[in-house]
């Protein structure tokens, strides 16, 4: 069974990610232990909340995540995806892990458009990728976020439109990020977690 380390840096609801990975057939562990993370076959970086607090709470685990990302597949979810980017403009300007080029921006204010972008919206597949194996061209997934990742088309796997078009899934080498919550997106989300596990050789 493939060992997946879910990085526990003190934020959010990790239980659903854990159960989702378990359901998808992985041996998942919620951990903050650098040794456990280093020996995993794959890493999930979850997260909800604010960017700067997230990076601060990740703290010393940053180096572990960066080292592991060169060895094994990594999946960032929601804030976990945003932290993969170079920087974020949430409450100032803050540096991210710089594993995927680009920056995190706030949705522009448009009258009548609510922020956070909260609820079910579609992802459109922009580039064929094993992470979306078996997916139709468009699927509904669950989003909750006020900031979005801006990256280049070559790093964009799926796009979504809310106020403006944005990258809802990104990739650089074996580092993946999804802005939505696969662990809250029913059968579609579980399929994505299965695909992530299948990516791991």
């Amino acid at each position: 069974m493939k060992k997946i380390a879910i990085i526990d840096y003190g934020v959010g609801n990790l239980r659903s990610v854990y159960r989702g990975l378990e359901r998808a057939g992985a041996d998942a562990t919620i951990t903050a232990d650098p040794e456990v993370i280093a020996s995993a076959d794959g890493i999930v970086l979850p997260g909800v909340g604010a960017f700067r607090e997230g990076m601060e709470m990740l703290g010393d685990l940053k180096a572990t995540v960066l080292a592991s990302s060169r060895e094994v597949p990594l999946l960032g979810i929601c804030l976990g995806m945003q932290m993969l980017m170079d920087s974020s403009e949430e409450h100032g300007n803050h540096r991210g892990l710089a594993l995927v080029p680009g920056e995190v921006k706030r949705f522009p204010a448009v009258p009548g458009m609510k922020v956070p972008h909260m609820g079910w919206n579609t992802i459109r597949i922009e580039a064929a990728d094993p992470l979306f194996d078996g997916f139709p061209p468009e699927s509904y997934v669950y989003f909750v976020h006020s900031f979005y990742a801006s990256t280049t088309p070559e790093h964009t796997l799926t796009s979504t439109e809310y106020i403006c078009p944005f990258a809802s899934s990104i990739r650089n080498a074996t580092t993946y990020g999804v802005q939505f919550h696969p662990e809250k997106s029913g059968a579609v989300g579980l399929r994505l977690l299965e695909n992530f596990i299948d990516l791991i050789c």
């Binding site: 972008h117 609820g119 079910w120 919206n121 468009e138 439109e161 809310y162």
Partner: peptide, 8 residues
């Protein structure tokens, strides 16, 4: 492609 209305 739009954000859908939710039924809860």
């Amino acid at each position: 492609m739009v954000l859908t209305k939710r039924i809860i």
